[in-house]
Design a protein around this nucleic acid. Structure first.
Lengths: 225, 225, 225, 225
DNA sequence: TATGAATGAGATTTCATTCAT
DNA sequence: GATGAATGAAATCTCATTCAT
């Protein structure tokens, strides 16, 4: 669950393998970038900031990455596989549909919380660089498809019909993406600056469930997250 | 803040009145900025791009604006009063709650579509500059409050209870904001690049209505938008 | 005959016309570049050197040129049209073939002497950048063709046959190009560092004449250059 | 300066002897440098390119050379002794002066062809670095002296007088140097990209012979090169 | 007001050389 | 000897802002 594990040991730009020292440096740079992307934002972070934060010389950055985009690329990759991994582990056979939805929302929220740097950076980059807009579309595409499939399944079960499951999935996905961004990165709304995890999760789950089932969610059992 | 206090015809920074020529130049610059913010994005638009597009000399920009932020400031102001104006004109006393919601969503969608430049710029700027994040929070705050008030009203009518109307309002607002951004600015999702107006509006209205009423929306009558 | 006249008033990168002030600045930068290319060489001259020498700010360079290559491009253009102009003025109907050749060689030598900066820079650049190698080939191509035509004319007059006039023209051209470079730029041979104009011209003319006519040149009359 | 004093097997900078492994590494680096100087040019070749091409680690370069100049220094040395060697082997007592000249030119051409990397690098370096300009002057100095001596001998034989044999030698040397560079390195003239060996050699020999003897060369016998 | 040239503080990127392992 | 990561001094280019005309 630490942000630094997983796929990010990575490789230098040219595909060569790294020495132990190299692995350490690369990790230090990624960690520094993550930290800065979160605190100052992707666009406002200079390469020099990253190397300074990592305690490395400016030039060392280029031993491991061709440019700032490549750092984000790497982080986005890790972010996606992390979420994918967590979602795969999820128990989707739960008796209660609401629990399935809540678990799903919960995984998404906590992934975003643990990777707020990545989330912030990807969001930003998607607005600055069309290449990243495309990348971000791809990353979220699986999630959209799964939601749409769920909506369709509910329709085929004869429960509630949705005239355009993909559009609805896009709306629900947008809700989750931006709600997470607002509360985890941007610092909340005008008169409230943060949300407890369970409130955030319940809120998203509620919107999600009601949208799909057009009915009230079951009364809550005792607390979770 | 009267809706027509002359802000958008604009005044120079020092409060002096503009000559007719000045009014024209200022408008040309704003129009150019709008166009560029939409096509290349706020961050990727340089002052020189704006003046070139406007057919003015670089230096003229500074006759009317202190910097790019001020241009956006102005556009945001106009954007907000425009939406506010349209929402005020709205008939909220409609017999059918679904129609109220659909009208509201419809106004939001078409405002965003007609002001995609502003939307794009505000969104982007809110991610680059904390000052604009705050500004954007304020702009959307009224809408959030109204939604929350609506949810509360429904609860008080004894229909459906919502444990945290503000949080839900934030979720619904996030859905609308980002859904509009995705489909009007970013170019849609991975496998669909645009949405007809009525589909977009129906989709948002559906999510909105179901979330608030925890029930299916009424079956659509013929023709819309 | 000053290096700064002619085509080099030029235009800024984007084709816009320059103000009087702009014309002055651009000329100052070109003059500075010319001076530095000659004294330190093209490759060893930094943009900052040029602007410093011209008494301008670093950034001003980019108002007039996209990069160093473009400066040279401009200088090469001027150089070529200058030589072309001088050659066109030449009297080729002289009774004495030797005089024609000597005049031609003389024009070439003095053009190179007056434009040693350009010569040095073009030579250097042609070795560093394939694009300039091509450019330089094109520049000298006319001269080669004229020489070849001359050789062919001599052959058709039944005087001396040359099995490959183009190859010979290339050899004579190479001789002139590099001889000029050696004596005007590089500082001569191991044991002699400069050559009086008339010696240089006589030498090249001799090689040229003897190669074409396979006979001794006429005995020199008095005074020349 | 015996032709085989071991220079090209080389010694490390400090005079220590190399191990067998060291000899192999040094040779690999020289070969890689040769190859790259030829294909990308001296200035465009980085140390890292050389070590990569040689399959060695970057740092290993500095075990054998202090810098890139030293590599070229070494190659220039080899180049010169190679040409000197070939010229010494030449039969200068041939009955026919034209054959002497043709042999000489032929040796020069084939030396340049077999050492095009060295030729390219020396030429380039002589334009970038005054130290190499000097070096290159020295290298070619012997050749110039020999040519001048030949011209003088012809004059003393009462055949043709040359007012400045050294200048003429410089012109003929320039012709050969640059003609070889143009056709062996730069890729020819605008409308022809290569020359068969015998055409190149005949052409240079023709210019050379006619310049020295101010008379047509003897009609060619069969077979050459 | 309008103009567009001038400025210079950044930011990125490259690469020769050093050095710890 | 061999390795390749680390270094940091350049150099290039950008662009918001100022200012003389």
């Amino acid at each position: 669950m630490t942000p630094d594990d997983g796929a990010s040991e990575g490789l230098p730009a040219d595909g060569t393998l790294l020495t132990a020292r190299g692995v350490r440096s690369r990790a230090a740079l990624l960690a520094a970038a993550r930290h800065l992307f979160e605190s100052k934002g992707y666009a406002n972070t200079k390469i020099a900031d990253i190397t300074e934060e990592a305690g490395r010389a400016l030039g060392s950055f280029y031993t491991y990455f061709a440019n700032k985009e490549e750092v984000l690329e790497q982080m986005a990759e890790d972010f996606k596989s992390e979420i994918d991994g967590r979602l795969t582990e999820l128990d989707l056979t739960s008796a209660e549909p609401y629990d399935v939805i809540r678990n799903l929302v919960s995984v998404y929220w906590s992934s975003c919380r643990d990777h707020s740097a990545e989330l912030a950076a990807i969001f930003q980059a998607s607005m600055l660089d069309p290449r990243f807009a495309q990348r971000w579309r791809e990353i979220r595409s699986d999630a959209r498809k799964n939601i749409a499939a769920g909506i369709r399944a509910v329709g085929q079960a004869g429960l509630v019909q949705d005239p355009d499951p993909e559009a609805t999935a896009s709306a629900l996905g947008s809700m989750m993406d931006y709600f997470c961004y607002v509360w985890l990165i941007e610092g909340g709304e005008a008169d409230r600056s943060s949300l407890p995890d369970d409130v955030a999760i319940d809120t998203m789950a509620r919107v999600f469930y009601r949208t799909v089932f057009a009915a009230p969610e079951p009364a809550p059992g005792p607390g979770k997250q």
